[in-house]
Design a protein around this nucleic acid. Structure first.
Length: 249
DNA sequence: GCGACAG
DNA sequence: ATCTTGTCGC
């Protein structure tokens, strides 16, 4: 997909600037829209036009010692869940881990990996939150606003939000609420019977129900979406290769 | 001030 | 995220 560099010069350097940037982008999020449809019709060649039959997963791995972040983007066919393409990108860790400001730490590298893809996926699944965020701009929403793509956030822990255990059957869910406002910011979704739920929230250009449906379609055999599993595996293997002096690819 | 806190 | 051993179960 078209490269979208987040120039070092434009990245917030401190916490206050980062929060101000989130406040600025926050109103640009569109928390509604359809789920990607598997067979819309014509394939969008191999260019800049987003292809709704393609869904990507992104994730990162760190080497704190050397201040490195390795991001991976893996594109799957929404119908078969087969891997269509995958890329990686290495960047310097330029922001500390601060709950609520994860995007500034991970997105630069993620954008680098996405920019190396030949095709443009219609949807991107992130490892983390979207609207379920103190300022309603978690990394999934932030990535959506920056790229204009439909995004979904699938996190592994409830962060600072409240929820009740969903019923045991796969597909069951319960609302994830913001203790401060009481509003539903996401849903705890049971992707596997009796297994700890995942926390789904809207990223950009999709509704909550649609985001949950998409997540369930991607997580049939395992708790986490196939997109996330592939991206996680790839960035970890790539980081291990770097630490060993093995060429990347 | 203290504790909690996506990855 | 990452650090870490063995262990229970499909």
């Amino acid at each position: 997909m078209p490269a979208f560099a987040w120039s070092t010069a434009d990245r917030p350097t401190n916490e206050a600037a980062a929060i101000a940037e989130q406040e600025r982008l926050r109103p640009l999020v569109r928390p509604y829209g359809p789920a990607p449809s598997p067979d819309p019709g014509v394939a969008s060649g191999s260019g800049a036009t987003p292809d709704d039959r393609l869904i990507a997963g992104v994730d990162v791995a760190y080497d704190e010692e050397r201040d490195l972040v390795v991001a991976a983007a893996v594109v799957l066919d929404l119908d078969t869940l087969a891997v269509v393409e995958q890329t990686t990108a290495v960047d310097r860790v330029a922001f500390p881990y601060i709950p609520g400001l994860l995007a500034f730490r991970e997105l630069p590298a993620v954008l680098g990996a996405l920019g190396r893809l030949a095709r443009t996926p219609g949807t991107v699944v992130c490892d983390g939150y979207g609207l379920a965020h103190p300022r309603r701009l978690g990394l999934a929403s932030h990535l959506g606003v920056l790229t204009g793509l439909r995004t979904i956030g699938v996190a592994k822990t409830p962060f600072t939000f409240d929820h009740h255990e969903p019923d045991a059957p796969r597909g069951s869910w319960s609302p994830l609420t913001d203790p401060a406002t009481g509003e539903e910011v996401g849903r705890a979704v049971r992707t596997r019977a009796g297994v700890k739920p995942v926390f789904v929230s809207v990223g950009h250009r999709i509704g909550l129900t649609e985001a949950v449906d998409t997540t369930l379609a991607l997580a049939r055999r395992y708790r986490l979406p196939e997109t996330t599993r592939h991206a996680d595996s790839l960035c970890r293997r790539t980081l291990a290769g770097l630490q060993r002096g093995t060429p990347t690819n």
